[in-house]
Write a protein that binds this DNA or RNA. Structure first.
Lengths: 196, 196
DNA sequence: CCTACCGATCGGTAGG
DNA sequence: CCTACCGATCGGTAGG
């Protein structure tokens, strides 16, 4: 019984998060009011607070869930038996996959995290910095082993991640590109730019 | 005399725009209040309205000035005598230059344009679309002439522009990278990815 | 350039 | 899940 109630709460919260995500993308986090979210669901704003803690908490959960997913993936890649270039390609493909299949939460994480509150915002920045410096380490190893072009590794990491995050422009403009074609073209562009 | 007053008004307006830009970057456009801007200058909020029309108008002027600069540059490149790859490199270098030297206004234009009001927002999207499809045309010509790798041109345009706009991450994190090193590494990465 | 102030809207709480 | 409502804050105007 307690189990059923818990499940009902979770699913209602998921509905809120989902509707909120779409509005955050459309209007931005600060311009989306709790009344907007409530209206999209069909309830009054105060009712939302039976399921969530605060508007900012909604944002926090989205950003940290995405952050966790990338951290877990990175750990697997780091401990895999592949060349450095192979690892980078796996990471690139995973970022592309996430931009396509988790677009809403990716967009919000990439753009609205600045509105996180006091401890969360610095935790988030720290995780991000850590993630990128570990990518940088993989690139540097690949450069040493002459698999990767001699580039400034930090510049290369920022460049390739930004390029992939640019897939958002695709969703926004509503252009029709096959996901597979997008992935293959982007991977070729980036890998050929990196490959020695 | 009228001339002098006009110049004074312009310069005061420039101060407002400049201070507002910094706040828009730090807090986002919607979360920046007119009181924030006024406070940063040292006046009361209503005083701002002697120099500007509205908060949204401030955003509009920033976005359309940047848009105009890119359109003018593109026109020059299009009519220049260079290979397609040469044109693309010139455009890449110009985008990098702008991201470094006009960072504040570039950041706002890239991120906050969604908050533009009714006719401006669609004008802006139209200009953007037009600009990108003209870059795409240059790429396609380069592919036909076998100067450029056979890629989906729209994907390539989005990818390279997003990559360059990613320079914002650099400013934000406050990392120290020499502008010249940043430019050369990024150009090499992107051009080698495009070159046949 | 200011003070005084407007109507609207915000996130969130009380109480049921 | 609702109504009723809070204090705060918003963009902007009036009037000087």
């Amino acid at each position: 019984m307690a189990r059923i109630i818990a499940l009902e709460n979770e699913s209602k919260k998921d509905v809120i998060t989902q509707k909120a995500s779409l509005l955050f993308i459309k209007k931005g986090f600060p311009s989306t009011s709790m009344r907007d979210i409530a209206g999209a669901i069909g309830v009054e704003a105060p009712s939302l607070y039976n399921h969530i803690t605060s508007k900012n908490d909604l944002l926090r959960e989205i950003c940290f869930r995405i952050s966790r997913v990338f951290m877990n993936h990175l750990k697997k890649v780091e401990s895999s038996r592949q060349t450095s270039l192979g690892k980078i390609e796996a990471i690139i493909r995973f970022h592309i996959y996430m931009m396509i299949h988790e677009f809403e939460n990716m967009y919000i994480t990439n753009h609205e995290w600045i509105h996180l509150h006091a401890p969360a915002v610095s935790d988030f920045k720290l995780q991000r910095r850590n993630y990128r410096s570990r990518l940088s380490a993989i690139l540097k190893k690949g450069i040493t082993k002459k698999q990767i072009r001699k580039l400034n590794a930090d510049v290369a990491v920022h460049t390739m991640l930004a390029a992939i995050n640019g897939i958002e422009g695709w969703h926004r403009s509503g252009r029709k590109v096959d996901a597979r074609e997008l992935e293959e073209n982007m991977v070729e562009f980036l890998i050929e730019g990196l490959k020695k």
